[in-house]
């Protein structure tokens, strides 16, 4: 029966057409237009292109000379690294701990997953209150413990922590749930056998849990790396236009700023192209490095 269905390709094609059209209109067409825009001379948002740039690759040269673009790419790569270590790492640690407890594991799953369902904008506003200079939660706590001066959490000394901490915190629950599901799929018999052989807790994690979780972790890492490229809303709400002193730009926030605040449409289109290229290259590398294995 299956073979009959898959031999007749025509109905499948018919039902794939609308989805393909959707992708063509809302993804491929805008992408092609974006490439054209990146080499065109567009004076303002809403204004028609006034011919091609001279030379046509002018925006791409400018990007290499733009120190803020370099900052944005550097910060995005730092965010990516932090995502691997703190999001997936913390999620793994929490999952291993929750997996060990018998009572209340459901409670912890809900608690850790909860930040995912809150909108990033709301979280941004919430963390703005936490890191606020005058009357913010952290500064008030420090004052309660006798600190004489407030800390400017968005200042040059602390901005990276202030920007990354909420992003890390928000997505830990997502990877936590995936890893917990992976842990549930590991047979208890394997652990029992290891216990009989005298393996202690850490050895069981090292020699049983981690190897058997490899594919799940690889999936998490690929998702984390590619997801880091798309982080925009939380940093934008918290750090706005590169606070402090243009040091906190990410590729996404910088592109948005160039488009909607500076109205530099052609340059921001070129940045968008670079983001796509960066995404494709990094996804390919991530897929190669974190390649899943068949056991």
């Amino acid at each position: 029966m299956n073979s009959t269905i898959y031999k007749r390709k025509f109905p499948l094609i018919i039902f794939l057409v609308p989805a393909f059209l959707f992708m063509a209109v809302f993804l491929y067409y805008p992408f092609i237009m974006n490439i054209i825009n990146s080499i065109s001379n567009i004076s303002d948002l809403g204004a028609p292109a006034n011919g091609m740039n001279q030379p046509w690759y002018q925006n791409y040269i400018r990007m290499f000379e733009d120190p803020l673009m370099a900052t944005a790419v550097k910060n995005t790569l730092i965010l990516m690294g932090a995502t691997i270590v703190f999001q997936v790492g913390t999620a793994l640690l929490l999952a291993l701990l929750v997996d060990r407890i018998r009572k209340g594991s459901q409670f912890f799953r809900t608690v850790y997953f909860f930040p995912i369902v809150i909108s990033a904008t709301a979280l941004g506003l919430l963390f703005n209150l936490v890191f606020l200079y005058n009357g913010g939660m952290l500064n008030q706590l420090r004052a309660a413990f006798g600190a004489a001066q407030y800390i400017d959490w968005k200042g040059e000394a602390h901005f990276m922590f202030t920007m990354l901490a909420p992003v890390m915190w928000q997505y830990v629950g997502f990877y936590f749930v995936i890893i917990v599901t992976g842990l549930n799929n590991i047979s208890t018999e394997v652990y029992e056998a290891a216990e009989l052989d005298g393996a202690c807790c850490l050895k069981r994690v090292r020699y049983i849990t981690l190897p058997l979780l490899r594919n799940v972790l690889c999936t998490c890492l690929v998702l984390a790396v590619t997801g880091a490229l798309k982080v925009f809303d939380l940093p934008w709400v918290m750090m706005g236009a590169g606070i402090p002193m243009d040091k906190s730009w990410l590729t996404g926030t910088y592109m948005y700023n160039q488009t909607f605040l500076r109205h530099d449409v052609d340059y921001s289109s070129a940045i968008a192209i670079v983001i796509v290229v960066l995404g494709v290259v990094i996804s390919k590398i991530a897929n190669t490095v974190f390649k899943e294995k068949d056991y």
Partner: peptide, 13 residues
């Protein structure tokens, strides 16, 4: 003190 990192609503507060 934080004029280079604060938002407009923060300073107006």
């Amino acid at each position: 003190v934080n004029t280079l990192t604060a938002t407009d609503p923060e300073t107006f507060q």
